[in-house]
Simulated assay, not measured.
Amino acid sequence: MSHTAHIRSHRKPRRSASTIAMRAGVAGGVLSTLAVAGASGSANAAEPVTQTLELPTLTADLAAQVAQSADVTQQAAASYELQAERDAAAAKAAKEAKADLADAKKKAAEEKKKAEEAARKAAAERASRSAERATLSASADTGSSDSSGSSAGSSTSTSTATGSAAAVVAFVQSQVGDAYVSGGTGPNSWDCSGLVQAAFKSVGVDLPRVSQSQSTAGTQVGLSNLQPGDILYWGGAGSAYHVGVYVGDGMFVGAQNSSTGVVKASLDYDPPSGAVRVL
Rank of each mutant, 00 (worst) to 15 (best):
G149S: 11
S130F: 01
T158V: 09
W234E: 03
V49E: 13
G163I: 08
S18C: 04
P272Y: 05
V181Q: 04
M22W: 13
C192A: 10
R129V: 03
A138G: 15
V263Q: 02
D268R: 02
F200P: 01
A97R: 10
G183F: 07
K264N: 12
Q214L: 01
V30G: 11
A123T: 12
G194V: 09
M251L: 11
A166C: 00
H3W: 01
V49W: 11
V49M: 13
Y233S: 04
K106M: 12
G163W: 01
A198M: 06
E47Q: 01
P271R: 10
S16E: 03
S159L: 10
T57M: 09
T160F: 04
K121G: 02
M22D: 10
A78R: 06
D230F: 02
D87W: 07
L101S: 08
D268Y: 01
A99T: 11
A127S: 09
S224E: 13
S16H: 08
V205T: 07
S150I: 04
A102G: 02
I20C: 00
T19D: 03
A60I: 09
S213V: 00
S69D: 03
R133M: 11
C192R: 03
M1I: 13
D103G: 07
T156D: 04
S69N: 09
A198F: 07
A97W: 09
V36G: 14
R11Q: 15
G194S: 10
Q256M: 08
A165D: 09
A170R: 15
F252A: 10
I231C: 02
A104C: 00
N225P: 08
L223C: 10
P13F: 07
Q212C: 00
C192T: 04
I7N: 07
V66N: 13
V221D: 09
Y233H: 08
G244H: 01
Q75M: 12
A63E: 12
S150A: 09
V30T: 13
G41D: 03
E111M: 08
P272C: 04
P13N: 06
G153Q: 03
G153D: 04
Q173N: 13
L279C: 04
S16M: 02
V263C: 01
A123P: 05
A43M: 15
A152F: 13
V262K: 06
T4D: 04
S155M: 08
M1C: 15
A165L: 00
A265L: 01
A35M: 14
Q214C: 05
F252G: 06
